[in-house]
Amino acid sequence: MKTTFYYITVLFITLNTAFCQNTMSLTEGQLSPKGSLSDISWIEGHWRGEAFDGITEEIWSPPLGNSMMCVFKLLVNGKVSFYETVIILEEKGTLILKLKHFDKDLKGWETKDETVDFPLVKVDGNRVFFDGLTFERVHKDEINVYVVLSSNGKEEEVTFNYKRYSGHK
């Protein structure tokens, strides 16, 4: 299962934009545009949604020290399937999102010094486009995250719809 999720979440970097209406990618040689954490600070908070026949959860910190951090987990049938640790860094006048995957026992999928990186492509009002991943603010208590996933040679844009979670059911 670890290998399947690894390929689903990592191999989407090669995009087929004809089928990807909410994501963008940098063209060869294109540099990331200007961007700051204030462009995306609205993702701060505790978010829950449903995907992959389970519950997804992301908890984003407010901007501090030129970065925001996030932990993600996927629960399937009430059990953790995998985790991600994510950061968005503001450096050299732009943004970059970096993530690492971990199995349910916190064993890393990437090597010690390896991260999966998503450079900034565009900031456009309520949307922030990273290379292969887009955040969209629907309103203050709802966001969408669009990701292009590749599996068996096919690419598909997947939508994660999150609602702000207050900790109460």
Rank of each mutant, 00 (worst) to 15 (best):
M1C: 14
K2S: 14
T4N: 01
T4I: 08
F5E: 04
F5W: 12
Y6L: 11
T9A: 10
V10I: 07
F12P: 14
F12D: 15
L15W: 02
N16A: 12
N16D: 15
T17E: 15
T17S: 11
A18G: 13
F19R: 14
Q21A: 11
N22S: 10
N22W: 09
T23K: 09
T23V: 11
T23P: 06
S25C: 13
L26M: 07
E28G: 12
G29T: 04
G29S: 10
L31R: 15
S32P: 10
P33V: 08
P33N: 13
K34Q: 15
K34S: 12
K34V: 09
G35A: 07
G35P: 07
S36W: 00
S36K: 11
S38W: 01
S38E: 15
D39L: 03
D39C: 08
I40V: 14
E44G: 09
H46Y: 11
R48V: 06
G49W: 08
E50F: 10
A51L: 15
D53I: 00
I55D: 11
I59Q: 13
I59V: 15
W60Y: 10
S61M: 03
P62E: 13
S67N: 13
M68P: 04
M69V: 10
C70R: 04
F72I: 03
K73G: 01
V76R: 11
N77A: 15
V80R: 04
V80Q: 08
V80W: 00
S81N: 13
E84V: 01
E84I: 00
T85Q: 11
T85P: 00
G93F: 08
G93V: 06
L99P: 00
D103G: 08
G108T: 09
W109D: 10
E110C: 01
T111E: 14
K112C: 11
D113N: 14
E114M: 06
V116I: 12
D117H: 01
P119C: 01
L120P: 04
L120Y: 03
K122Y: 06
V123G: 05
D124P: 02
V128C: 10
F129S: 09
F129R: 10
F129N: 01
F129I: 06
F129M: 07
F130H: 08
F130L: 02
F130Y: 05
D131P: 00
L133D: 05
F135Q: 06
F135R: 03
E136N: 10
K140Q: 12
K140D: 15
D141S: 13
V145T: 03
V145W: 06
Y146P: 04
Y146I: 04
V147A: 12
S151V: 12
N152F: 14
G153S: 08
E155D: 14
E155L: 12
E155R: 12
E156M: 09
E156L: 09
F160V: 02
N161T: 15
Y162C: 01
G167K: 10
G167E: 12
K169S: 14
